[in-house]
Design a protein around this nucleic acid. Sequence first.
DNA 1: AATGAATGAGTATTCATTCAT
DNA 2: CATGAATGAATACTCATTCAT
Lengths: 215, 215, 215, 215
Amino acid sequence: MSESSLSSRRARRTAVRPARTGDKRERILDAAVRVFAKKGFHATRVSEIAKTAGVADGTIYLYFRSKDELLVSLFEDRVERLLRFLHTELPERATASDRLRRIIELQLGLLEGERDLAEVVTVIIRQSTKLMKEYAAPKFTAYLDAIARVVADGQATGELRDDLSPHLAARAIFGALDGITMTWALGKADRGGLVRASGQLAELVLRGLAPRSEA
Amino acid sequence: MSESSLSSRRARRTAVRPARTGDKRERILDAAVRVFAKKGFHATRVSEIAKTAGVADGTIYLYFRSKDELLVSLFEDRVERLLRFLHTELPERATASDRLRRIIELQLGLLEGERDLAEVVTVIIRQSTKLMKEYAAPKFTAYLDAIARVVADGQATGELRDDLSPHLAARAIFGALDGITMTWALGKADRGGLVRASGQLAELVLRGLAPRSEA
Amino acid sequence: MSESSLSSRRARRTAVRPARTGDKRERILDAAVRVFAKKGFHATRVSEIAKTAGVADGTIYLYFRSKDELLVSLFEDRVERLLRFLHTELPERATASDRLRRIIELQLGLLEGERDLAEVVTVIIRQSTKLMKEYAAPKFTAYLDAIARVVADGQATGELRDDLSPHLAARAIFGALDGITMTWALGKADRGGLVRASGQLAELVLRGLAPRSEA
Amino acid sequence: MSESSLSSRRARRTAVRPARTGDKRERILDAAVRVFAKKGFHATRVSEIAKTAGVADGTIYLYFRSKDELLVSLFEDRVERLLRFLHTELPERATASDRLRRIIELQLGLLEGERDLAEVVTVIIRQSTKLMKEYAAPKFTAYLDAIARVVADGQATGELRDDLSPHLAARAIFGALDGITMTWALGKADRGGLVRASGQLAELVLRGLAPRSEA
DNA sequence: AATGAATGAGTATTCATTCAT
DNA sequence: CATGAATGAATACTCATTCAT
């Protein structure tokens, strides 16, 4: 076993090479999450990402156009998973409540155990002004709209109170999710913390949106 | 006498030469809010703040130790107003619900009409990693604790449901406030938007925290 | 006298300061000629020019927009002197022969004793492709046209043979001047070499352009 | 057998496998002329030469030691043809005038129709400082000496005026040829332009070098 | 206090070259 | 011979900060 870690790595490289390109790209993204989370976007040196990933500085530019685009790719690769989940899972849920609960569970559940990624999503993404304004803004909007639609639908069926603006509710829910994630990531980031939080937040939100009569 | 150096410094600035010096310091802070909001922290050049403020580059360093500290000062000068308000006003409110409502009204009300400041508080502050980790974290914690205490008190008196963690509730409320402010600042930032939002958010939060029996 | 070199430098800086800005700009240009001639344009490091000029790297950018523009400025400051001389002196000469002789004397005479500048003018200027195509080309054309006009005038008065294209003659004269300067600069660059060459070249050119009847 | 390695290498390239190998080397040189002329030496990427030649980047290094040496090889392959011609043809010419005329015809005639090569020879070669100082200088000197010898011989026989330095005359002739070629290459590069120029330049030079009595 | 010219540390990115396949 | 993914050295330029005036 003494040779296991080294030789397996070499073997993978030399013989098996299961996904040479993908492998390297993946290693760079993994390294980027870790270093970005530790240092922040601007304080992160591309050379440190390279060192962490075990590749040469120049190699990063074979896979990503720039440091900014590396952050974008990180976002796309890791976060858009969430949006795909939502598109898949939400239609299966019968009620607006179930859908909102699922949104909350998914967003917090997917980041549980990924403290670095959570920090990137809640804090680091806002450090690249260019990114924030050009790339992230439309994504945020789309996500907010998706939540607002669920709320509006629930109001239409009478399942949810209709004296609140769906868009305002969506912003509040999104903010709560973001705030909970950020404080978790910047704080102790205890195992299970986000999952526990998701249950409580769902409680809070669903009661808050329940029609008076239902109470 | 142990406080002499600190207090004298404050005194000199605040009391003795209130006009001339305060004027310039204030102009620099005003310029900083505007430029930070427009360009983001890192893309902002100290020289541009100087030009906007109508002073020489070097003058900024007579009032602030560094660019980072300028952002800190901005935060302190403009935001700690909120904490002082809270400390003054909260004790006057009789119920936990009233206090929570007041927190929401204050945070959103104070930023209403100050779009640039709102952007600085919700976005720019996260762009200085050093600031975020060293300065802002304890402030956030203190603010969260203040909210959590209100919730806990309300639970103790039976005014609020007690099946939710006060700290989680505080993080959710804070996040909702932050998210609403951010989307407002980055979006249309319509007049009255934050005040309207505050009423709706209070509705949502207070219903969400109400005990089942009250329903 | 022990303090002479240091103190005089300081004195010049602190007290006299005859032309602070001009002084520094001039020192940079002087350094640039020397380093460009020694290393060539691309192999020259901006930091080496700075060191040679005794200023900080960044200072160069207070006076010149870029390394390319530094070379342009060099060209403008040092070489356009020649064009001004031509414009001043040529009209004073009565015959085309005198004017051609003056052109040859001026171009070679102004570079005599300035080996580095001669190398910059004949070799280095062609190393910045951007410069060559955007800046130098029109200057060359203008210069060639000026020479061609002198030749054409001489042909019109019968002073010069008229079976040669003035433009071709101009290109040949310019090329001869350039080639002589270049080989001198790259070779021994002996004192008086260019002045001696100018007399001989004038002989060659004027005889070559003389009308057959004059023979 | 002492020459085996060298000759066999040459043999292999020239005789045995004339098509495949020679083909590739030739394609690379052709591509290099085109790209160097278009972009200049430094702005030319080895990868672009490879793409233009239709080979892989690494393949270039099977034929040329470096980018600099590629330019040297270009010079050798394309330009030394001229020197060989001169060595073959000059002895056949009876008079110094005929030899000078032939030199002019050859240099301009060989570049007629090869605008890119003309630009490489007159401009690009000066962009590699290393090349210019280490490789080209001795070639220039040899060429200049060859011309000077023709002039000196003509002076010795009384065919040419003897009041001009043969070396100066050679530099002037070389410069004129170079200048005419460069302005042609950088300008319209019209068909027949260089051949026409060669007749006129020969006229100018030969008249300029003719002894007074002959006039 | 105020100025702004000068400083010089700091880094993303390019691209000639290599070498495992 | 040929490939092209990987390498990593190398550098122009910016801008926060200083300090002589």
